[in-house]
Amino acid sequence: MFKKILTLSAVMLLSACQPLSQMTPMEVLTAVGTASISAQDGKTLEEKRFKAIKASKLEAYRELSEQIYGFRVSGEMEIDKERLGIDKANGEVDGIIRGAEVIASYPVGDSYVTEMRLDLRKMKKMMEFGEVQSVPRNTSILF
C-alpha cells in the first residue's frame, strides 16, 4: 500500500511540473518598423520620404534581430551624499539577419511603415553558404 501511495505521489508531482500546453517552435517571425517622414534630413519631401522608407526597413531588421538574439541592457547609477547623480541606461541589439522579406511598405500619415517576415528555416539554410565577416566601425577607407 505504501508503495502505491509513494508511486502515485511521485507521478502527481512530476505531472504538476509539465506545461499546460506544448510550446511550438516558431518558424516564421514578423516585424514592423516605422519612421517619421518629417523628422528626416532632406531638402525635398521626396528625399525625406526615401530616407523614412530606409529607416523603417532598418527598424524592422532591428526588431527581427531583437527577437532572435535578444536585447542587451546595461545601466549605471551613481549616488553621492544620498542624492542621485549619474543615471544611465543603454540598450543594444547585435545580430545577422539573412533571408528576410519585405511584406509591405506604405505611408501612414507622417510615418512610413515596413512589414517584414523571416523564415527561420530559410535563414538557417542561407547561413550554410558562408561565414559573415565583421565590418569595423569608424574607419576610413582609402582607395
Rank of each mutant, 00 (worst) to 15 (best):
T34Q: 05
D80L: 09
I37K: 00
G95M: 05
L20N: 12
V93C: 12
K48S: 04
Y112A: 01
Y69L: 13
K124P: 01
T114A: 09
S15I: 10
E115M: 07
K125M: 15
S21L: 15
V73R: 09
R117V: 03
Q18D: 07
T44K: 14
A35D: 03
Y61T: 13
Q40R: 10
V108G: 01
A52L: 05
F143R: 03
A89H: 03
F129H: 02
E128Y: 01
I68M: 15
Y69C: 11
E63Q: 07
K124M: 15
M26N: 11
M77S: 14
R72M: 09
S56G: 12
F143T: 01
Q18W: 08
M1C: 14
A104G: 04
Q133P: 02
R62N: 14
Q67W: 13
L45R: 13
L120R: 01
R72F: 06
G130Y: 06
R83E: 12
E78R: 09
T30E: 15
A10S: 10
T139P: 03
D87H: 08
G85S: 11
L118E: 04
L45T: 13
V132D: 11
D41V: 14
P107D: 13
D94I: 13
M126Y: 03
R83F: 04
L84Y: 03
K125A: 15
A100W: 03
I97Y: 07
V32L: 05
Q133N: 08
Y61K: 14
T30Y: 12
G85M: 15
E59K: 07
F2Y: 02
F143E: 10
I37S: 01
R49I: 04
S36L: 02
G109V: 02
E78A: 08
L14W: 03
P107Y: 11
L14M: 14
A89D: 06
Q18H: 06
K88W: 10
I97V: 15
E59V: 04
R72P: 00
L84K: 14
T30R: 11
V102E: 12
G33V: 03
V93T: 14
K122T: 04
E128Q: 14
T30G: 11
V108W: 02
L118G: 06
E46H: 00
D41I: 13
E82H: 06
E92W: 00
E82V: 14
M116N: 06
S15Y: 04
D41K: 09
M23G: 08
K54I: 11
I37Q: 04
V73P: 00
E27W: 05
G109W: 07
G99Q: 08
S74P: 00
K4Q: 14
L118W: 02
I141W: 02
D94W: 07
F143I: 05
S105I: 01
S105V: 04
K81M: 09
T34N: 06
F143N: 07
E63R: 11
K88D: 10
S56N: 06
V102A: 03
G85Q: 08
